[in-house]
């Protein structure tokens, strides 16, 4: 079915079209939210709301972008809103907290690294560190970097989602990487892991 056809069915409240849409884009949406929220329960929670918004606002979708672009935008905005409303959630550590209090990075052990407790601990510390470093980036750098890293999106696709020029996205991602490198170097020097 064409994208216009899917939207038309959604406007009519067609449940089959909605369930197909959820099945098609579920992984993409959860993954995008997860890239911003770093927590699977939160990501699924926000992703549910993303699809509800998609269903309800289908009549307002003008069709001037791909469905996926439109859904990505909703997913990014909803995730950022969620963060704004749950800023000091449990376990939240800012990058500065981590760098200034060495060796206090905490996190749940990663069960997928072969059961080596030392390596699990290191990986979970690294995970907390890199998430905090990404979270500390300026908003647009963070969105562009996350879409590129987590969703493997091309700069062109990111420029469409963020409604920016291609060169702006290139520059955002370049600056994001330089900033991350600087942050990781600070942490390395202070031996925060």
């Amino acid at each position: 079915m064409s994208e216009a056809g899917i939207i038309e069915k959604l406007r009519e409240g067609n449940e089959k079209a909605f369930s197909d849409l959820v099945n098609t884009y579920q992984k993409m949406v959860v993954n995008t939210c997860y890239g911003i929220l770093h927590n699977i329960e939160d990501a699924e929670d926000v992703a549910q709301d993303v699809f509800i918004e998609v269903f309800r606002s289908a009549s307002g979708f003008r069709g001037d972008s791909k469905i996926s672009t439109w859904i990505y935008r909703i997913a990014v905005n909803r995730s950022l809103n969620f963060l704004r409303n749950h800023k000091r959630r449990r376990g939240f550590q800012s990058f500065d907290d981590i760098v200034e209090t060495p060796k206090t990075v905490t996190g749940e052990a990663d069960t997928e690294s072969g059961g080596d407790p030392q390596s699990d601990m290191e990986n979970s510390q690294r995970s907390v560190l890199i998430h905090a470093a990404i979270d500390a980036l300026p908003k647009n750098q963070r969105i562009a970097f996350t879409l590129n890293k987590y969703e493997d999106l091309s700069y062109k696709e990111i420029s469409e989602i963020m409604e920016l020029s291609l060169s702006s996205v290139e520059s955002l991602i370049h600056r994001a990487k330089k900033n991350l490198q600087k942050k990781l170097y600070n942490c390395y020097k202070k031996k925060c892991i």
């Binding site: 099945n23 579920q26 959860v30 290191e122």
Partner: peptide, 30 residues
Amino acid sequence: EYMRKTLKVLNQERKPDVNPFFYTRVKARL
């Protein structure tokens, strides 16, 4: 090496598994 290991974490954690009850939950919430 420190940076390589740290960035590798991002590649490892990508693509969480699809929750089989996801659509049911969306529908219930809606």
